[in-house]
């Protein structure tokens, strides 16, 4: 077995993953928080006022990164669900299910901040615009995955059923992403583009990208946190879990 495969297998073993995740996650939360605060400072204080939208545009610094995360978390969840369904890898099942509530949280923030941005700019909290509707469907998909996973007693079977739903729901991702191009409605088009120049000033774009980085790092911290708990639950009878439980019990509560 080559060294990479060996390393991969070791990483996939629950006690090793549990330990490494425990080492990584305070860094993810810490760095995510610091970068997020710097990005907000850049966005709310340093960035200039928008000539059309005034200061209301500053909602972009929480709205757009969380909306990106709602798609990224879904892609991460679906990719893990795919690996779990095809290769029956326990850790992938866990990572897929762990990312669902985090993705749902980001989707909720994107929807609520979108409404808070829509009211002063469009004059309405909500409209059945293609982008808004498909993002709402995304939230329901996340809730469906969480609900289906919770409804089935057997943890492995629950993860497989929920993973299947996550895979089916992936058709919604391109709809969310391209909705502003396919249907000409209220929601504005993409401001920051990977291909070609962004339609935004540099003083505005760095806080936006930094916030995107911060939310990604935070996402991984949260995934590790939730995956660790799921591992404890799934491996409840194993020796290493017993040791973890007894060590923590001797500590505080």
């Amino acid at each position: 077995m080559n060294i990479l495969l060996l390393w991969f297998h070791k990483l996939g073993s629950p006690p090793t993953f549990y330990r490494l995740a425990g080492l990584l996650l305070p860094w993810c939360y810490g760095i995510g928080l610091v970068l997020g605060l710097v990005a907000l400072y850049g966005g709310l204080v340093l960035a200039p006022r928008d000539y059309q939208q005034g200061d209301a545009y500053r909602i972009i610094f929480v709205h757009v990164p969380t909306a990106w995360m709602s798609l990224f978390a879904y892609a991460f969840m679906a990719a893990n669900a795919f690996i779990a369904l095809v290769w029956h890898i326990k850790l992938s099942e866990i990572l897929a299910i762990a990312s669902a509530p985090i993705g749902a949280a980001f989707t909720l923030i994107a929807l609520v901040t979108g409404a808070l941005w829509g009211k002063p700019m469009w004059g309405t909290w909500w409209t059945w615009d293609a982008r808004l509707t498909s993002e709402l469907v995304l939230l329901f998909l996340y809730l469906g995955v969480i609900g289906l996973n919770a409804a089935i007693e057997d943890r492995r079977q629950a993860a497989r059923a929920a993973g299947f739903l996550a895979l089916v729901g992936i058709v919604n991702l391109p709809i969310v992403h391209f909705s502003v191009n396919w249907w000409n409605t209220l929601h504005q088009g993409s401001t920051v583009r990977l291909m070609g120049p962004s339609k935004i000033d540099a003083a505005m774009v760095w806080p936006l990208l930094l916030m995107a980085l911060a939310t990604h790092i935070w996402f991984f911290g949260s995934v590790l946190m939730r995956a660790r708990i799921a591992l404890l639950q799934l491996e409840g009878g194993k020796d290493w879990v017993r040791r973890v439980a007894l060590d923590e019990g001797a500590g505080n509560d």
């Binding site: 909602i59 929480v62 969380t66 923030i109 609520v112 901040t113 808070l116 941005w117 002063p120």
Partner: peptide, 9 residues
């Protein structure tokens, strides 16, 4: 609108 958005975030 701005501060509620930040608070929700």
């Amino acid at each position: 609108y701005v501060w509620t958005s930040v608070a929700v975030f």
